[in-house]
Computed example of a mutant assay.
Amino acid sequence: MSLTDDETAIRGLIDRWAKAVHAGDMAAVLADHADDIVMFDVPPPNEVRGLAAYRDTWPVFFEYQKRAVFEIVTLEVTSGRDVAFAHALLRCGTEEGFRRDPDSRLRLTLGLRKQDGRWTVAHEHHSFPLAID
């Protein structure tokens, strides 16, 4: 199955974002996000609205990221003419954490829209599975 140009563009956007997160590059993390982004996140605040609030969530994670892994394991993209979604599993954690739980994966879901010929992230959702005994 071959990818469409839009799917290829979206994959590139997500790959750049993940690399920027790992590098702690705030400008690149924000680059392809809509001004009115809504994010549901793991740590509080669990819901943020707007690019300024989204920006404010990253400094603490960047400090954590200095000793952690953040890499895409799987990524699937579905795109239409002006909306798309993507979901991925990422290795996100410390090596010590992966020794305890090597299969731990962060779940990422993105909702994107195309505006003026450019894809932007309008919704971002991060979660970890909850182990229930």
Results as ranks from 00 to 15, higher is better:
residue 54 Y to V: 06
residue 93 G to D: 08
residue 37 I to C: 08
residue 86 A to K: 09
residue 11 R to F: 01
residue 48 V to G: 04
residue 122 A to F: 12
residue 39 M to F: 11
residue 77 V to F: 06
residue 28 A to Y: 04
residue 89 L to H: 01
residue 78 T to W: 10
residue 97 G to N: 04
residue 92 C to G: 03
residue 123 H to P: 04
residue 131 A to S: 13
residue 32 D to Y: 03
residue 67 R to A: 07
residue 77 V to W: 05
residue 5 D to A: 15
residue 37 I to Q: 11
residue 98 F to E: 05
residue 74 T to Y: 05
residue 122 A to Y: 12
residue 56 D to L: 09
residue 83 V to L: 00
residue 112 L to W: 03
residue 54 Y to M: 08
residue 11 R to H: 11
residue 126 H to D: 09
residue 4 T to Q: 14
residue 106 L to R: 08
residue 46 N to M: 15
residue 2 S to K: 15
residue 85 F to N: 08
residue 21 V to Y: 10
residue 26 M to H: 12
residue 3 L to K: 15
residue 50 G to T: 06
residue 115 Q to W: 11
residue 122 A to W: 13
residue 87 H to V: 11
residue 2 S to C: 14
residue 107 R to H: 01
residue 30 L to N: 09
residue 105 R to P: 02
residue 125 H to S: 13
residue 101 D to K: 12
residue 127 S to N: 11
residue 63 E to A: 03
residue 114 K to T: 06
residue 96 E to L: 02
residue 121 V to W: 06
residue 132 I to P: 10
residue 65 Q to I: 10
residue 59 P to C: 05
residue 126 H to Q: 09
residue 81 R to K: 10
residue 67 R to T: 03
residue 73 V to F: 04
residue 50 G to I: 06
residue 54 Y to N: 09
residue 34 A to D: 15
residue 83 V to N: 01
residue 114 K to M: 06
residue 11 R to A: 15
residue 90 L to P: 01
residue 78 T to M: 03
residue 48 V to I: 11
residue 109 T to H: 10
residue 33 H to I: 14
residue 59 P to S: 08
residue 85 F to C: 00
residue 12 G to F: 04
residue 120 T to S: 12
residue 99 R to K: 05
residue 111 G to N: 05
residue 9 A to G: 09
residue 22 H to S: 14
residue 132 I to Y: 12
residue 63 E to N: 03
residue 13 L to I: 13
residue 120 T to I: 12
residue 100 R to L: 06
residue 21 V to F: 09
residue 17 W to N: 11
residue 61 F to R: 11
residue 33 H to W: 02
